[in-house]
Amino acid sequence: MFRSVLPVTSRFARATMSSVALPQGAQPVYTAINQKLVSALAPSFLVVRDDSRLHAGHAAMRGSPHRETHFDVTVVSDAFAGKTLIQRHRLIYGILAEELNEQQGGTVHALTITAKTPAEFDRTAK
């Protein structure tokens, strides 16, 4: 299971991304998700988890040529302040539209989203 935890500050977000050592080669979608969320939302905390292996056998995935299909993202960003759950999800769906659009070659079939503001995240962490 590929997994990285990137507690990044918004100030260093871009610099951190470029210096993070991602597993070589095999994960273009994982890399794109990380980079797009970082540059669009300047998250203070970001975890992208590739759950694809867990779903490899399920109905809709049978016969799929894609390996990067299921992701779980936890994003903490000021960008979510004042937004409803639906608005937060739509914001992320918009940022990752290319990855999610199956009709245009996107491979991401399921995206689990936890989107919180820093204040909300502090509260749940305590």
Binding site: L85, H89, Y93, A97, L100, A110, T112, I113
Partner: peptide
């Protein structure tokens, strides 16, 4: 719905969300 994933839940004609949102609600 301009929503790229399934499942989708609707209550009284209004889109409520998918699993993550329903779970939080």
């Amino acid at each position: 719905s301009s929503w790229p994933t399934l499942p989708q839940v609707y209550i009284k004609g209004e889109f409520v969300g998918g699993f993550d949102i329903v779970s939080q609600l």
